[in-house]
Computed example of a mutant assay.
Amino acid sequence: MAATSSVTHQGLDALPASRTREFVRGLLIEHGILEPLDLYRAWFDQRARQVPDRLTNPTHRAVIRRYIRWNHQRRMRQLDPAPQGTFLRSKQAITVAAERLNWLTDHDIDLATLGQDHLDVWQATGPSTRLMADRFLVWAIRTRLASIELMIQRHHRGISPRMNTPSSPPPTSPCWTRLPQIGPTVGTRSSKT
């Protein structure tokens, strides 16, 4: 960097990625040496270039590139500057989408023949971050890459078999003990009305 006559964002980008490089960039922007830059969008663009390389299927690489370009990068360009929350959600969404597409490849399923049973198995066998796949699924349905009947199942409290076993004791926290006991008259009308 010291060998060049001018300092630019492109020159900094040519250096190895590190926290130090980004710290120096921030200092140069703060002191007016470099023009302001939408850092979250720049970081997302840099990460987005790496995601297709993690996919093993060439067709899925093309799908993820389209998803990134037309869903996430387009939205980030509309926001000036892109907020941190948008950056973090978009980063997580493309990570989960790539994981989803790799799972499809591993199970010899393509996006066009993806069924709800496949989607349910994938969702049930992984972490809760797989709920972020709904963003990719909505986009895939809208672009006619996947069936319109597909949906990510949301988890609702109290429906898990493990949580609702008859052998589990009732809650003992003070807020539960203060609730009135509900008897057999719930849902019946009073004769005075």
Rank of each mutant, 00 (worst) to 15 (best):
8 T>V: 11
13 D>T: 07
13 D>S: 10
14 A>I: 02
22 E>F: 03
22 E>A: 11
23 F>E: 11
26 G>S: 13
27 L>M: 14
31 H>L: 11
33 I>Q: 05
36 P>E: 01
46 Q>A: 15
49 R>N: 10
51 V>A: 07
51 V>M: 09
53 D>R: 10
62 A>R: 11
62 A>S: 13
62 A>D: 13
67 Y>V: 14
68 I>T: 14
68 I>L: 14
71 N>G: 08
72 H>L: 15
72 H>F: 15
72 H>Q: 15
73 Q>E: 15
76 M>V: 14
78 Q>C: 07
79 L>K: 13
81 P>Y: 13
81 P>V: 06
83 P>H: 05
86 T>Q: 04
87 F>V: 08
91 K>S: 04
91 K>V: 01
93 A>M: 01
93 A>H: 06
97 A>D: 04
98 A>C: 05
98 A>V: 02
99 E>Y: 00
105 T>R: 00
113 T>W: 05
113 T>G: 02
115 G>Y: 03
120 D>R: 02
123 Q>I: 14
125 T>S: 15
129 T>Y: 05
134 D>K: 14
145 L>M: 11
150 L>G: 00
153 Q>P: 00
157 R>D: 08
159 I>A: 08
159 I>N: 03
160 S>F: 09
168 S>C: 06
171 P>C: 12
176 W>T: 10
176 W>N: 01
177 T>A: 14
177 T>W: 07
177 T>L: 14
178 R>P: 00
178 R>V: 12
191 S>N: 07
